[in-house]
Every structure is written in C-alpha cells, then in structure tokens.
C-alpha cells in the first residue's frame, strides 16, 4: 500500500479522467480495444479518446463506419472471442439503432448459453442536457437499460469516480453501459491518481452527511442537487446527499440506511419521470424504509415530454430551486 503522499495525482476534468481510464486499461490489457465514430485520429467529438490512437495504434483505437448497431454488433463478436471492447456511442441519444443488439444479444448471451459465452463490453455514451446541444443529443434514457436484464448501468458525477468506475466497468465480466454526464465533462477538476484504481460497481457514495432529508441523484444532477443541499443547510435543514453512481444494480444498503435515518427522501433525475430509475429507488425505499418514512417520497425529474429544443432545456431540467421546493415540502409535511 502506498501512502497518500506517494500516490501521484493529476488535476483532471471528468472527460480527461475518462481518457486517463481508457489509457490505463489500453496499457495494461492487450485485449482492450476502443472503437466508435471519430474516436481515432479526431480523438472523439468530446476528445474523450484524445491521443489514444497515436499512442496505441489505429488497430486498437479504431474509427468505425457510422453505424451504432454495427459498432455494438461487432463489439459483441470481439467480446465473445477474447477481447474487451469499449464502444463509444457519440451521444446516448444515438444509441437507439444499437438497442436491438444490446437487448437481444449483448445482455443475454451469458444467460442463453449458460455462461459458455459472455460479453465483457463497455458502451460509453455522453448523455444529458444543459449544453445547448441540437435535438436528440441530450437524451437521458438510462431506464431503457436498467430495465434490460443482463446490463449494468454506471454514471459518474466527478473525475475521480469517472476513472475508477470506467476501469471497474472494463474489468467487469459483463456488459456495462457507462453514461458520461456531458454537462459535467469540463465543469471542474479533481485530483485523479495516475495509477490504476477502481470504484466498485453497485456502490453509491454519501457526499454529505445529514439528518433531515435524503437527496438522491446521479450524474449531472449531483451538482444541481449539491446546490440545493447547500441552500438548505444555510436555512438549517440538514440534507444527506447520495450519489448513486451505479443505476443497476442499485446500492440498496446505502439508500436504505440513509432513509431509515432521515425518514424523508427526494429523488432527482433529468430523465422523464414516468418509468425513470427514480421509481426503482422508490421501490427500494418502500421495501427497506417504509415504516421509517415521515413524508411521501418525492421526485424532481424531467417531464414526460421529449427532451425539448435547447431554448427550453433549463425549464425541463431539474433546478436547485425545484429541488429546494421538494425538500421543503417534504420536511413540512
């Protein structure tokens, strides 16, 4: 074990931490391949694969034809035959052509062959609103994948977790959707260890300790919730902020323990409310903390509308004010 002082760290943004995670794994494992649209020489539209083709060669960091189903389909073929492909979807909103490959093959090959074949594949995809992107680019469709048996779904909210979760996802023996919060890509920097480390899949994080209400968020919404929590603290309401980090499987114990303590919960996500992962969080609370509740659990979520053109995106996305409102309603119930 190295002491903290011995671990060399770099100040990285979230997207740089993703690159660092990819580099770490490309270096360590010959079988790791990166493939997608524009990931080679261009380094990805967000520069998430910047410099990797030059460092590891274009046969390991591959520009592919513009075809999401083809990218995932060939990645499946590579994965069942000894490789660990990391496939990039340029935006999560572009994943839909690949949905069939993920739903009917990637996620169930292990199951339908009694583990003879497996798909150790990561699908990386920037997601979420708030960057004035053209339509379709801002979709947050995680629940299409949490509902899919055989898939894990991971969402970091900060640079440290991004690298650690990505490495854990690449090492995972099963397919993982790795959602990258676009709005947080360059929002701030963290100390990110240069060496390899992992953040365990299936484990959330308690970001602030609190007594009165549990606020649960992930990805882009963690920063938004953080602002609400700070406002509440100033008004004397103590919030416990949870960053779920993995959306399937959920960190049941973290949620249960917190809500059993506070008796109140506000769930925040930018995906449409109906059918969102918030409902699964609610279900955990219902099973694990029903008798501890002092107020109905509330959700602050995107609306059941298509993600709007960006002129209205700030109306659509949960804001600190809406979260504050929900927290106040909860504590005054």
């Amino acid at each position: 074990m190295k002491t903290a002082a011995e671990i060399k760290t770099n100040k990285l943004t979230l997207v740089q931490a993703v690159t660092d995670g990819l580099r770490t794994m490309l270096k360590e494992h010959e079988e790791v391949l990166v493939l997608g649209e524009d990931v080679g020489q261009n380094g990805g539209v967000f520069r998430a694969t910047d410099g990797l083709a030059a460092e590891f060669g274009e046969d390991r960091v591959m520009d592919t034809p513009l075809a999401e189903a083809g990218i995932v389909g060939t990645s499946i073929g590579l994965a069942i035959n000894g490789f660990r492909p990391v496939a990039e979807m340029q935006f999560l909103g572009f994943v839909y052509p690949a949905y069939e490959q993920i739903m009917t093959h990637a996620s169930r090959i292990r199951s339908r062959t009694l583990s003879r074949y497996s798909v150790p594949m990561v699908i990386r995809a920037p997601y979420g609103g708030g960057i004035r992107a053209p339509e379709i680019h801002s979709d947050s469709c995680e629940s299409l994948f949490t509902h899919m048996p055989g898939m894990k779904v991971v969402v970091p909210s900060n640079p440290y977790d991004a690298k650690g979760l990505l490495i854990a996802a690449i090492e995972d023996p099963d397919p993982v959707l790795f959602m990258e919060p676009m709005r947080s890509y360059r929002a701030f920097k963290d100390d990110v260890p240069e060496e390899k480390y992992t953040v365990e899949l299936g484990k959330g994080a308690k970001l602030t300790e609190g007594e009165d209400v549990t606020v649960i968020a992930w990805g882009n919404m963690v920063a938004t919730a953080q602002k609400a929590v700070e406002k509440m603290e100033a008004e004397g309401i103590s919030c416990e902020l949870l960053d779920l980090r993995t959306l399937y499987p959920l960190d049941k114990d973290l949620i249960a323990e917190s809500v059993q303590k506070t008796g109140r919960a506000v769930i925040v996500h930018e995906a449409p409310e109906t059918g969102g992962v918030g409902n699964d969080v609610l279900s955990v609370i219902n099973e694990e903390a029903f008798l501890y509740l002092r107020a109905p659990v509330s959700k602050v979520a995107g609306f059941d509308t298509p993600f709007p053109f960006f002129s209205l995106e700030e109306e659509y996305l949960p804001t600190p004010e809406r979260i504050v409102h929900a927290i106040k309603k909860s504590v005054t119930f």
């Binding site: 189903a69 083809g70 995932v72 389909g73 060939t74 990645s75 499946i76 073929g77 590579l78 994965a79 069942i80 035959n81 000894g82 490789f83 069939e100 490959q101 009917t104 093959h105």
Partner: peptide, 14 residues
C-alpha cells in the same frame, strides 16, 4: 440479420 455483425466481430478478433 443480427448475427452478421457478430460474425464480423469474431472474425476481426481472429
């Protein structure tokens, strides 16, 4: 037709 990209991927692996 979903198996065609798999065949391609497995062949790329070989």
């Amino acid at each position: 037709a979903t198996q065609l990209p798999h065949a391609t991927g497995a062949a790329m692996a070989e």
